[in-house]
Design a protein around this nucleic acid. Structure first.
Lengths: 220, 220
DNA sequence: AAAATAATTTAGGCAAGGCTAAATTTTACA
DNA sequence: TGTAAAATTTAGCCTTGCCTAAATTATTTT
């Protein structure tokens, strides 16, 4: 049976927190979900003890998803990213506005709806932020991007994705022309503070690590 | 604060059941909501005792909406009907498929989303079934339609609305060409069983009262 | 290695929103 | 008009999913 909205949120966050390979901690999960750590413990204990478990959990060791849990998480993430793409393309939402709306819609659309928007959009590979959209058979495509922070003087690339930016930063990046598909050239690098000087569309900007680590590039 | 999904459903059904002027009974409401009558009693008692009450209720006398309750109901109904229109026009849903999808989406879309689809659709007056869409300031437009069952031989009209038909009947009516905007001519009337013989697009059909009372007409 | 701090879990509680069974009204009808 | 049937309400219970406070376990620091 389809997981509840709450459980879908748990799975989605656990998926994100475990992308680095290590289990998700109770605390981190609580922060991401805006609920108390004690509540998280209760929920993951319940989920770990169900018949076909969606996740695995040992006291004090954090949580990981089973493959069933991963599928369920990817379903939600696919919904989210298709919805963001669709809202931007058909209703004129800007990329810093769509997140909240998609966050609610992702839990209630049917598989039929998912198929229809995917088809209407031409089965896109990435959403408006450049995040990869899980495929219809619920696999996450391989990510071949590198963070902008890894580039050095005279290297160039195309922006693929902006990760983990809030609406404010997104608006700011938009003003600078730092959106997916923009071409970037690194004109200087400061080894002290890791600042990068870059050129986008004739304009030059100096960016700190907190920004350059959120911009992902296809290196040229 | 925005009512919960459950409460929104109560309000919507009560609105529909009280459109005839009389209060909605516990039983009817339970049937429409697919829950037990005892549960309905509990919920409406709670709602009737809140600070700014959404509904009025006296034991054994049924429920009616306050004007605040009506507004809240019309908001949900507006969402539903705009969504149905939107899904049909932009995603190719057929009019017998949209209901379920809209039933879930209506509770989670933002006012911003509502405005965007209303504008994209050109602020439509009716949804795909012909039902009137409450206005942005939450008033239900006047309904000047008459049931097809009230027409007699040689009278003609345009179909405005199909009310209370399930998906099966909707598909059937679609096949007969009995959809909103179709022009109809009554070629015969049987006072015994109230059957009407009608002509739509060169074809003739005989319809019983169970159907003719669900088709609403703008009389010519 | 002990003490302090941080993270996590346990225990007990609460609100929402359902359900069943039993009691009470209301309505219908003989 | 009295009684049976139907509708409604009451009472008590359950699950979901969150909370707080207190207890426990891990991790740091000294």
């Amino acid at each position: 049976m389809k997981p509840s909205t709450s459980i879908q949120d748990y799975l989605k966050r656990i998926y994100e927190l475990t992308e680095n390979g290590s289990p998700a901690s109770t605390n981190d999960l609580a922060r991401e979900l805006n609920i108390k750590p004690a509540s998280v413990t209760g929920m993951i204990q319940k989920l770990a003890n169900e018949k076909p478990a969606l996740l695995e959990y040992q006291k004090h060791q954090g949580v990981t998803l089973t493959s069933a849990g991963k599928k369920a998480a990817l379903e939600v993430i696919r919904h989210h990213r298709l919805l963001e793409t669709w809202l931007v393309q058909t209703l004129g939402y800007s990329w810093d506005e769509v997140h909240e709306e998609a966050e609610r819609l992702e839990h209630v659309i049917s598989e039929d709806f998912e198929r229809r928007i995917a088809a209407a959009l031409g089965h896109p590979l990435r959403d408006p932020h450049g995040e990869l959209i899980p495929t219809a058979d619920l696999k996450m495509p391989l990510d071949d991007s590198t963070p902008l922070s890894a580039l050095r003087k005279n290297q160039t690339g195309k922006i693929l994705c902006i990760k983990g930016a809030d609406a404010d930063l997104l608006r700011h990046l938009d003003e600078l022309g730092l959106t997916p598909n923009a071409m970037i050239e690194v004109t200087d690098y400061s080894p002290f503070d890791h600042n990068l000087t870059i050129k986008v569309e004739k304009k030059t900007h100096v960016l700190g690590l907190s920004v350059t680590s959120k911009i992902f590039i296809e290196q040229k």
